[in-house]
Each structure stands twice: as C-alpha cells, then as structure tokens.
Write a protein that binds this DNA or RNA. Sequence first.
DNA 1: CTGTTAGCGCGTTCAC
DNA 2: GTGAACGCGCTAACAG
Lengths: 331, 331
Amino acid sequence: MASPVTLADVARAAGVSVATASKALNGRAQVRESTRVRVQEAAAALSFTPNFFAQALNSARTGTIGMVTSDLDNRFVLPVLLGAEDAFGSGSLSVLLADARDDALREQLHLQTLLTRRVDGLLIVGRTTNPRPPVPLLADVPVVYVYAPSSDPKDASFTPDNVQAGRLAAEHLIEKGRTRIALINGEASYAAARDRAAGVQQALTAAGLEMVGGTALFGQWGEGWGRDCARLLVRGGEPVDAIIGGSDHIARGAIDALRDEGVRVPEDISVVGFDNWDLLVRESRPPLTSIDMSLEELGRAAAQHLVDAIGGAPSPGVVAGPVRLVVRDSA
Amino acid sequence: MASPVTLADVARAAGVSVATASKALNGRAQVRESTRVRVQEAAAALSFTPNFFAQALNSARTGTIGMVTSDLDNRFVLPVLLGAEDAFGSGSLSVLLADARDDALREQLHLQTLLTRRVDGLLIVGRTTNPRPPVPLLADVPVVYVYAPSSDPKDASFTPDNVQAGRLAAEHLIEKGRTRIALINGEASYAAARDRAAGVQQALTAAGLEMVGGTALFGQWGEGWGRDCARLLVRGGEPVDAIIGGSDHIARGAIDALRDEGVRVPEDISVVGFDNWDLLVRESRPPLTSIDMSLEELGRAAAQHLVDAIGGAPSPGVVAGPVRLVVRDSA
DNA sequence: CTGTTAGCGCGTTCAC
DNA sequence: GTGAACGCGCTAACAG
C-alpha cells in the first residue's frame, strides 16, 4: 500500500487545520514555531508524502524535465545523458526520457507527450555535432540543445569545441618537434570532422607549417580507413612524422598499420586521436594520446543551464564546451 | 501559453455538461452517438488536451514507468534501455529515468521519488549478469529486472542466456572440425564469464573433448589479457586449433597476437568472441565470429512483460533471453 | 441519455 | 497565528 496518508491526516494528528499544516510544512512564515515543529513531527511519524499530482495540479512547476534523444544507440549520447541525469538528480528533478529514433515525426510526438506532462524544461540531445533545426514548440518551455546545436544561434546550445580539439592535437605535435603532420579524417558530412580539420589547419598555419598532402584526408570513421591511409602515407614519397586520426578509431587503425609496416610509434611517427575512448585508447599499442571531448561535463553544463533557464536565466547562445589533451605513449 | 482550454470549455462549446463531455471523450457507453461526435469535434476544434495531473489525481494508472539503471555508463545497458524505451513508447507509456550510479543508497532514494510519482511499474536494469538483491519496496508495484536478475527466483528477471552462448560458440567450432579448443575468459567474479565457461564445457563434454589446458583461463576482460594468453598458447607445447575469447575484446586481443606470431586465422586457429560488438567485430582482421546477446531484444521483452504485469500477468521467474551465433571470417 | 453533485489532495485567499 | 472555504481539472455516483 502506497501512502493513503494525506495532509488531512497529519493535520488531525497535530491538532491543527489542513491549512496550517500546509503552511507549516512548506515553510510559510505565518506559523508559530512550536506549531510548525508539532506538524513536522506528526508528518514524520505518519511518514507523510505529499501527493505529487495534487501538488502539480495547481502549481506552475512539476519538478520534471524532458530529455529527448535523437538516437540513444550512440556512444556519444551516453556520457552526455549521464552528466545531465547527474546534474538533475542532485537538484531533485526527475527526468522523462524519450528517444526519437532519428525520426522527426516521433520527436514531435514525444514532445507533445512531454508538454502534456508539463515538463519544466527540455533537453534535446543530438546524434552528431551538426546543427539541427530547432524543435517546433507551442508552449514556452525552456529548451537546451546538447551535442547537436540548434541552427538558431539564439537558442541555448552546448556542443563540444571541435575546432579547439583540432588545434590542441596539432599544437601538441608541433611542440614535440613534429613538422610533417598528416590528418586522416572522418566523413566530410560531419561538422565534427570539418571543425577538427579547421583547428588543425589553424595551428599548422600559425606555426608556418603545411599539412602533409596539402589537405585533410576526409573518408570514413572506421579503422579500415585509418589503416589504408596510414599505409599509403608511409609508402608514399612524402616524409611524415605525425598522423592525426579524425577519431580514436581511425588513429587506432593507423597505429596498427604502422606496426605492420615496421614503423615505430612514436619514434618515427607520432599518432594522436580524438574522443579519448577508453576502450580504444588504452588497449592500442602503444596507448593512444587523444583529445577528450569531456562529454559528461558537457551534459552536466547543459543540464545546469537548463535549471538556470527554468529560473529565468537568458540564453547564452551556442556554448563550445572545453576539451582537453590526454597524453599517452603514442605522441 | 500551454493549453488553458479545459474540459469545461469543450463542454460549453458543444452545449453539454462537463460530465457528458468527459464520458463522450473517454468512450463511456452512455452517450448518444451524435453528441459524442459533437463533443469530439468541439474538442478537436479547441485542440483540447486533458490535464494529465487532474486525470492522475483520481485514477490508479499514471501511464508512467520508472527505469532504474545501476550504471548508465555501461555499454551493455544501452541496448537494453533502447529496446525497453521502444516497447514502452509504442504503448504510449512515458519513461522516468533514474541512474543509481551503482550506489544502493542512491537507488533507494530514486525509488522513493519514482513511487511518489506513482509509476505504474519499475524496470531495474543491472550492470552485470550477477544476481542482485531485490529492491526493497513498500508499495506493490510490478517490478521487472533486466540484465542483472533478482536473487529471488520468484521475481521477474530477464537475463541473457550465457550458458547457451558458450554452448553455441563451442558447438560451432566443433562443427568446423576443431578439437583443440581453448577458452580465454574474463574475470571469474562475473557470472557471465562463469556461465559462458559452463556452456563451453557442456558442448565439449558432449563431443567427448577436453578443453585445452583442462580449464578456462579466467583473467581480465581486456585485449591485453587476450593477447598474452594467445601468445602463451601458441608458444606452449600443447596444440591448439581454436580459441574462444570470453568477450569480443579478449578475442580481438587474441587475433592481434596470433597475427603477430604469424599464425593464420582461421586456417591455423579459429577464433570466436562474445557480445558481437560492432566496433570490435567488424574491424578486426579477419572480422570476428561472435555470439550476439540480443540485448535490445532482451530489453524489449522485459518491457513487454512489465506492461503485461501491470495488466496483472504473473511473474515468469528468471527468463533466459535467446542469443545467436553470427558467423564471420574468424571461425 | 444527460446534468447535478461530490470529491481526489493540496495550496491559497481571507476572515477571525 | 489559525482555520474555514474555495478552486485546480477531471471522473464517478446518483438523479432526472
């Protein structure tokens, strides 16, 4: 049996009216301290829990936020989700989860449901860092976009700073004295790939260097692409002393290929990856230096801002979340 | 401006009383068809949405289920979560997500919150397949355990059939004519590792074979362990013609080591893994034959049962979810 | 068939 | 300080 114990029960036990009991428990001012204590004790004794729905029925807040993912089955959303859940949980907010399966119609449907349940705010978690159209909303609920920013720059968006990530990777190699740097990149249709390339280019230009091959090698995100390109690079005519993989996956492929080719990492060629994906980074030989996108932190920051926005804080626009270099043996 | 349009508005527009409007919209019998239509049209015209909280306030169901994860940051819970969310979503149930961070206290706290919000049912998603103590509940809400079964066999639990998985792996190798089979396993503290070993052993015994080394090599889950053991095996005196990795991770390590040692896969030694983890399985050389634990399906089944349980269905006890062999080039 | 009345449990006036 | 009374939006019982 749940808790059929109502405020009326508490009031009766404390010998006061429901109105007074309500005030006492909600910390309203107009209650004598002794009465307040008496009521609180009665409530505790009966282990009274206010009826959530009765409370929500006539109050603006529900203490619930909606989290809409475009694609739960994505390794990048997990940390974001975790960070967000954590931030909300400690703020005693409950999270309603809805996965849109990368389908705009489903997303719209879920949004309806969430609004019906009067969520205090919405967190929209994207699948890539490509900007996405803002959600069409009828009600005026605060919305925060994470990972995938809204295409409307006035919306609040939290997305990792991939340009800075690219810059960090290149700068690290340059500091290590590398001058012949190649970038084996992921798919050009991904903003993440383009941004990382831009960052690398910036750092190289600033150091007066040119990318090996003149440009980033856009391709696919997998190990296979990393292997193929790395092999081509070492067998090709141009000297190379460092390879940046557009992802840990690609970097891992590159390392494996270099190994097969008898090239020493990092002595002959240094390798850096992106994402700092535990799994790939720690078990590769040698362990991979990588840029951590701090996704959990990103999720936490976004969630925190949503809380603030519910409190009335203005949109910060597009926020580029900090990233950091994690040095291991490969570079 | 959400929808300040109430049932009263609809009733007024349709020229009936709120009671009649309510009955009409909820499909109660005692309403003339013509009035029902009139009310429905009025509701549609005003785009009326019933107030969720008012509805919940005096009805047993809330159309919400609570999903409690012990550790969101775990690659095994994702698919389960996805399958579950999918099953609920299509049944128009909303999901309240709560992550316990592998902390019993936090779990208890979240359960409280969920019960306060009167969830219709609870899905408890574990971190490993090790049995876990049942959640201490005050209310009588249906509970279903996924991945990690409840230690109380009377509870409804859905967990992958790791024994069968082990059996499948071994049987496949035996069919391929392999007779010198070794099992490089994960940590012995994991039921998954022990169960898989038991399944392998069963299949071998049934075929009159013995495991190479006499027993499974319990160790760690990583690639490193797979590499080390594989190297030892091929360099050791005993002949080996097949290796089962306790996970794709281990199997991948084994494959890499065999490659280094100049051993051909699968010609000289066949390799099989578990989990069918896309990432590892597809990019290894050669692509890895693996047992798919069908986790998304498991989540879906558990969710479906929870829906049934809310409808009054009895507990099926511990259900071992089906697994399947996915053949690729390594065996 | 339809409308009137009475709550669901709580917060909030407004008198006392 | 305290309590009686009303309303949130809806559904269920009883009349008509």
